[in-house]
Design a protein around this nucleic acid. Structure first.
Lengths: 343, 343
DNA sequence: ATGAAAGCGCTAACAG
DNA sequence: CTGTTAGCGCTTTCAT
């Protein structure tokens, strides 16, 4: 069993290359400062020793950890979970490209019926210099975090608009839900549908209201009536199923655009119950392009999460480099994943 | 705009409490060493100053980061993604309870058609002392990582058995897929089914073989014939659909136990095509309890990922504290989420 | 272009 | 039980 000798340090490299420690440091952080031959000699020593800079020492000295914090919420709405997985992957990749890693944390357990502490976990991490900045994703809960983080001068970027705070000055990236739903509505209209129903969430969700606005805009923009063509229900399959049945009975829509894949699946159930074929008889479009949509052949609005991650990281770099650059506010358009339920 | 004064340090607290820096350090790390009144005074000073220990300094000194690394793979099989989200959440929570955070990294982009570097990202992170240990999850790819990590003396625990390496000595936690499938098979058998088909993956996946073994064990253990009752196909809905059709034509099974929810959804499609009702006419069970299963009312085998996370963290603590304790090898039994497709 | 000195904030080791 | 000393490995002055 080989003795695990301690990892090489700057000093080891310096000795082996016959230079001072500082020169080695420069070779790594400011290679241009060195003469070519010195640099080569140092690099060779680094290689030979398998040297990797000790991050802890570097952090202490530079006061930066090259870590961004991301809080995982207890498990959000059904449909949001899926998106989270894709988003986290994309964020890790985007962060990697600029030399950052993602540190996951949680706000701690939330007692039954309690409101989770909006700042839970953030403060300690930042004050202990464990992370340089945060990516805040749960702004749909309203945004007490963003206000608090701003007050504590903790750098952060948000995935989600500051709906409730027009004075917010932090960078954010969001997906234009209204545009996505409008595109979905346009899509089924171009298929020949005119009685296009909106199946949305109960009021109170900014995101839900935004998505509905896309449907409304598309409909009225093309002179189509909207009266009696919408329902607002909880985000469950059963609620979608029931609402679809009621709408079909009342006003007989030939297409459904939904606020989520979950609701859309409810519509599909109702169609099957009645012997109607999704796609040929009644068009259905969901939102989020979840696995459910992919498996069931459901047309769905897809958020460009990879692009969101890239923009967030770019904003992060801005924030941390404190370039006086204007705050980024980016609104990205979703795409439409067209499948069998809209043909 | 208040001037962001630098955060308080140990020295600040010591001065305010009228003790030495070391005493403050002890108050935090070994409170029992202090006299009650001293401790109270120090704590008050900590409180008053809003002091949080600087992690970078602590890391440098103690040579531990209280970070565990988790590599996110490019996006695995359909069914595995879902599990990943739940698992990551559980891991973050379990780690938090013992004072660790989870650091996410990726192996970097993998060129089209290339094999991802099994050690990609691991080595640098460990050598730079960025993480104390790793949680390795992709052992189903075979386990070159575990071998390499062992060789480099990087502490780690694995989610997944060392299938290909009976000599492996690292701690691992896994889910007993065979037991889960056997329970699923027993379940439909108790419902009265005898011609129970296995719809699995093509050979070559240890996990797939393990799951199949559960079906085979349950069937033969109860004297039921298995001939002509199984198919091995790629993990797609269409493949499942086709295989189900062929099996129905050939040997007319009245129940399907599947290696994944994806395949099970394929079976559901075939049943619908033929006017058969899932549940009453033909029982169907999937694997992984994905959102698809939840939405479609599919009975499915559910991995106890929360428990897996807890066990992994316990193993991690063992490994890092270097108690001579025997290596943990934990095999957890899945549960069965019973829904409408098996009644 | 290279080197020497200082110190980031903390805790291990030892002394009292 | 508390204080003193030393140093983790690195980078930032400042000289040369």
């Amino acid at each position: 069993m080989e003795n695990p000798r301690p990892p090489a340090t700057l000093a080891d490299v310096a000795e082996r290359a016959g230079v001072s420690r500082q020169t080695v440091s420069n070779a790594i952080n400011n290679p241009d400062l060195l003469r070519a031959d010195t640099l080569a000699r140092v690099m060779e020593a680094i290689e030979g020793l398998g040297y990797t800079p000790n991050q802890a020492a570097r952090h202490l000295r530079t006061r930066t950890s090259r870590l961004v914090g991301l809080r995982l919420m207890p498990a959000q709405e059904f449909t949001a979970n899926m998106a989270m997985d894709r988003f986290v992957r994309a964020l890790v990749e985007a962060a990697r490209e600029v030399g950052y890693h993602v540190l996951l944390f949680s706000g701690g357990p939330v007692a039954e019926g309690e409101v989770p502490d909006p700042l839970g976990g953030y403060d300690d991490l930042f004050r202990s210099t464990s992370v340089d900045a945060f990516v805040v994703t749960d702004t749909y809960l309203g945004n007490p975090q963003t206000v608090e983080l701003t007050r504590r001068r903790a750098p952060f970027v948000a995935f989600g608009r500051p709906w409730d705070d027009p004075d917010a000055t932090h960078p954010w990236v969001d997906v234009d839900g209204a545009a996505g739903v409008a595109a979905a509505t346009d899509h089924v209209r171009e298929l020949g549908h005119e009685r296009i129903a909106w199946l949305g969430w109960e009021p109170g969700s900014r995101i839900g209201e935004d998505r509905r606005a896309g449907w409304y805009r598309s409909m009225t923009g093309h002179g189509l009536a909207t009266a009696g063509l919408e329902a607002a229900v909880p985000d469950t399959v059963d609620a979608g199923r029931g609402a679809a049945a009621r709408l079909l009975d009342a006003t007989g829509p030939t297409a459904f655009v939904c606020a989520s894949d979950t609701l859309a699946v409810g519509v599909l159930h109702t169609l099957r119950d009645r012997g109607l074929r999704a796609g040929s008889d009644v068009a259905v479009v969901g939102f989020d392009d979840s696995q459910v949509a992919q498996v069931m052949g459901l047309t769905s609005v897809r958020q460009p999460l990879e692009q969101v991650a890239v923009e967030l990281v770019a904003a992060l770099v801005d924030v941390l480099s404190a370039t006086g650059r204007p705050t980024r506010e980016v609104l990205l358009a979703p795409t439409l994943a067209i499948r069998q339920t809209s043909v």
